[in-house]
């Protein structure tokens, strides 16, 4: 078994452990026997604990794992097709569009509209709108779609929606503003089974596509022209990747709000461990993304329990040190 397989299995084992920890630990004070009984569905398990584990914690942990995996996978693909190590899933304005739509809905729309449509759907629509604007600004008939133009268009669209969000927050009602700020920092509180299926389906479909096209993605790392010389239709591949990233990141933002860091840094963690070939990089990135977010979500729940911290607050603090450690160790080899 090669090093990439070993590392992926190690990461999978750690992820399984983290998911169990995420299910077992929380604010409720209960014995270990009761926790096992509730998880295994034993008849004598306390009913309230079974409810907490099966209806609150387990779906929440799984949603967080799917979002972490989705953002890491989206980050890998964006960094590859844009030839840019600083690219992340939100680069095409997805998070800014989602933020402006969600904050605008929380602050300005009549409550019945927000509750009928739901903030996640409104946020997803905002993300798709920003994505369509960036894509529209980047496309030129017959041209290959320059990564630089996509990045600049994404920055312009992001800045526009960020200004809109800032305007909404500045003039909005202070009580509603706090709720909007909480959404902006990302939280998985209140997620249920119903929130899991769509992001999970998207993640399975996109990772299947990415693995099938892993050799084409490898070729793009050589440069657009080298990939074209190898017979790859780079423009078409780039468009499909952008659509896949919009789906993954849009659903992630809609489900738990804006979660940074994972889509930018986790692909680099995985690349430092197994190199740039996508057949190894995609599975490890996906598992590491899920692992990082599940661990950070658990910490968000227990550190100031019973208060809960937003994901964005703790993410960089706890995930950066392992990345720096890996970076230092790998760089010593050169």
């Amino acid at each position: 078994m090669g090093r990439p397989h070993v590392l992926t299995y190690v990461a999978l084992t750690l992820l399984a452990t983290a998911i169990l920890a995420g299910v077992f630990f929380g604010t409720a004070e209960v014995s270990w026997a009761d926790r096992w009984a509730a998880l295994s569905g034993a008849a004598d398990a306390p009913r309230s604990l079974s409810l907490i584990i099966w209806e609150w914690r387990l779906p929440r942990v799984l949603v967080v794992a799917v979002v972490g995996g989705s953002l890491a996978l989206a980050g890998v693909m964006m960094q590859t097709v844009l030839h840019n190590p600083l690219a992340d899933p939100y680069l095409m304005g997805l998070s800014s569009g989602a933020s402006a739509a969600a904050v605008g809905a929380i602050l300005w729309l009549p409550p019945w509209v927000a509750s009928t449509l739901g903030i996640p759907l409104i946020a997803f629509a905002g993300a798709v709108c920003a994505f369509a604007m960036t894509l529209g600004l980047s496309l030129r008939r017959g041209a290959i779609m320059s990564p630089l133009v996509v990045i600049l268009a994404g920055v312009a669209v992001s800045l526009m929606f960020q200004s809109l969000t800032a305007f909404f927050l500045y003039v909005g009602d202070p009580h509603a503003t706090r709720s909007a700020l909480g959404w902006l920092m990302g939280t998985a509180a209140g997620t249920a089974w119903v929130d899991l299926w769509l992001p999970l389906f998207a993640l399975v479909a996109v990772s299947g596509f990415a693995l099938l096209r892993s050799q084409s993605l490898d070729a793009v790392l050589l440069g657009d022209e080298r990939a074209m010389a190898l017979g790859i239709r780079v423009r078409r591949l780039r468009l499909v990747v952008f659509a896949a990233v919009a789906l993954l990141a849009g659903l992630s933002v809609a489900t738990v709000g804006i979660v940074g860091f994972v889509g930018l840094i986790v692909p680099h963690m995985a690349r430092l461990l197994v190199g740039g070939r996508h057949r190894a990089l995609i599975p490890l990135s996906l598992v590491l993304g899920a692992l990082v977010l599940v661990v950070v979500d658990l910490l968000c729940r227990v550190i100031l329990a019973p208060e809960e911290l937003p994901l964005g607050v703790l993410l960089a603090i706890f995930a950066a040190p392992p990345f720096i450690l890996i970076l230092r160790r790998v760089r010593h080899a050169y």
Partner: peptide, 16 residues
């Protein structure tokens, strides 16, 4: 084809 323009080669070895 041997092409002048180069990509990022992120994480690729010479064998890759």
């Amino acid at each position: 084809a041997l092409v002048q323009e180069g990509g990022s080669l992120q994480g690729l070895t010479i064998r890759d």
